[in-house]
Write a protein that binds this DNA or RNA. Structure first.
Lengths: 342, 342
DNA sequence: TCAAAAATGAGTTGCGCACCTCAAAAATAG
DNA sequence: CTATTTTTGAGGTGCGCAACTCATTTTTGA
């Protein structure tokens, strides 16, 4: 039918040389605006797409990406790293390398420092970022240096990052609210909320969404003040015990962050697990078990594998100047119950 | 650090020529088993991955895939085709072409004929298949001809297809059951099931899973006999009216296939929408609206975009002899409620 | 042992593009 | 007008591999 077009065909159509087409394609200087337009028109007219394999092959230089992740035992973050590992051969075949840099993301200065270290050393970076002025500045510096930057899991919307890979946390909170409300049935009673800290952007957003739904749709349920367990099992367990003791009519529980094992322990040992609609976040070894034995009713989850792959794909597409398949890269809010456990 | 390896390096390591490495890599004949082993060892030892771009470039010939889809107005199938369209530039950059062949998939002879037509004409095919002996034979012929074959949405497990892109329908039915059961609260009453036809494999599997959960976990709920609306709005609406009239204590409804608009119309006009926990399948314009206005409580969904992309990626990986990222290609059972509508 | 068959080596070509140099032409400033 | 700068053309090289050909070596069978 139609033999695939090449840059040579575009050059002929535009009435210019191959060198000029190359200059236009790579935004190199020294081409008159008028000529640029002619070449771009020719490409548009024939819906030309440079052969991805050829351009990839020609650019000898391997691409280097970095993932800046929280240090510590956060199982969700570890799952992302595992999934990165599983992409190894996929990346090797594309001559990509990914370095994982772990750091204390809760300390803005440390995080910003790690980001500054990357300037000029990588083609792109995925960052689990704290939303803080110095972090924002470091991200902007990285972008300025020509690197592509995506924020991961937690966004810094005011920075110049090219893309955010993660879920809408307000919607996630609303979803949790709808589930707790419905699972609690038509009963009347109190709802407990356990969070890591309301200073964390994603936690705050989830609580906001949750409260929105409870106030709007489930008036018969009274939401208690948020307890802050700092994502730690022990602390969360202790607070949960106090809540359960203080309020005999708790019929719903939303655990916003981690520390799920502690929360569940307190709930189980109170003997009231069957009476409380319990919704939390993420599918980990702990939550999987709780879902299976019925202590937990649902988990709101973002797919760590999808996030890892999406971050790499988006960085690669940005680096190559290819379009991003927005539908593909949208991270969905998964509702996971016992029967659709992945 | 380590300059990327090439086939030349492998040849040197294995103590053979480039030609022999090439023969081994492409399973060409005329190499002693002992030599094959030495070459493969060398590749394994150094974790060698052929440069994807280079091999793609060298094979000049464009790849042709075919998608065999049901004709008719099934919105889910149309969404898959739309998503294929959105991949156009992605595929163009990789010199892939995809032909969509629509056919009456409910007629085994017609479907098998279409598949036989593809033999020798494509490098791969994705098929929404009926599980029938003649279809199975046609799939096997296609595989025999060297084409890669994936079944899409509906599987033919006994065929020699290379891969299935779709969800576990029994688990989907179980998930629907868990949702209807919980949303119905602690109440006692009857549950209605509307399906396209129990002769369809996916519908039958969903009903099986649904019934399993209802019988096991929600004894207070009595499941009525399955009504078959043939995925048509009018027919489904009519049957639904009859059911609602005959049973005043229906508190749950599971719509297994399409025809959702008809089912919802009957339910709404009965004035009992608020009392009935209604769970159906797929996010379409119709179900989206029903979720938003509260008539429908949840939709079990498989992401059509994911299925389209997964089918293409799997066919491409199979054709290139690359490994498949199983976690990436697993299609998840999405639970969609008003608040996490994508 | 020798002829036939099998296995292997050595080499070539081209895929489409990125990236480079150098010369020539055109536009612009003085 | 000339001198300078800007723009464009022409061409080369190499990325790593697929897919071939043809000669040479090794193995096998009679």
């Amino acid at each position: 039918m139609d033999a695939p077009l090449t840059l040579r065909d575009i050059a002929r159509q535009a009435g210019v040389s191959l060198a000029t087409v190359d200059r236009v394609l790579h935004n190199r200087p020294g081409v008159r605006p008028d000529t640029v337009r002619r070449v771009k028109d020719a490409m548009t007219r024939s819906a030309f797409q440079p052969h991805a394999a050829a351009s990839e092959l020609a650019r000898a230089r391997a691409r280097r990406f970095a993932f800046v992740m929280p240090s510590g035992a956060n199982p969700f973050m570890q799952q992302i790293q595992v999934q990165l590992g599983e992409m190894a051969s996929w990346m090797a075949a594309r001559r990509l390398s990914v370095d994982v840099v772990t750091t204390d993301v809760f300390d803005p200065a440390v995080l910003a420092g790690k980001l500054e270290d990357l300037v000029g050393r990588v083609d792109g970076a995925a960052v689990v970022a704290l939303d803080h002025p110095s972090v924002r500045a470091a991200i902007n510096d990285l972008v300025e240096s020509g690197a592509k930057v995506v924020t991961l899991v937690s966004d810094v919307p005011s920075s110049r990052r090219h893309h955010y890979v993660g879920i809408d946390n307000i919607a996630a909170g609303r979803t949790a609210g709808a589930l707790v409300g419905r699972f609690a049935g038509g009963r009347t009673g109190r709802i407990a909320i356990m969070a890591g800290s309301q200073a964390l952007r994603d936690h705050a957003e989830r609580i906001f969404g949750f409260s929105q739904v409870m106030a709007g749709e489930f008036r018969q349920l009274e939401v208690l003040a948020v307890a802050e367990g700092h994502d730690e099992d022990d602390r969360s367990e202790h607070l949960m015990r106090q809540l359960l003791a203080a309020h005999r009519d708790i019929i719903g529980l939303y655990n916003v962050g981690a520390g799920t094992a502690g929360v569940a322990k307190a709930l189980t040992e109170s003997g009231r697990a069957g009476d409380v609609a319990f919704v939390g976040h993420d599918v980990t070894a702990v939550t999987r078990k709780l879902l299976l034995n019925g202590v937990m009713d649902a988990a709101i989850s973002q797919n760590p594998g999808h996030e890892a792959r999406s971050a790499v794909r988006v960085l690669l597409a940005l680096a190559r100047g290819e379009p991003i398949l927005s539908e593909q890269e949208m991270i969905r809010i998964d509702i996971v119950m016992r029967d659709n456990l992945p």
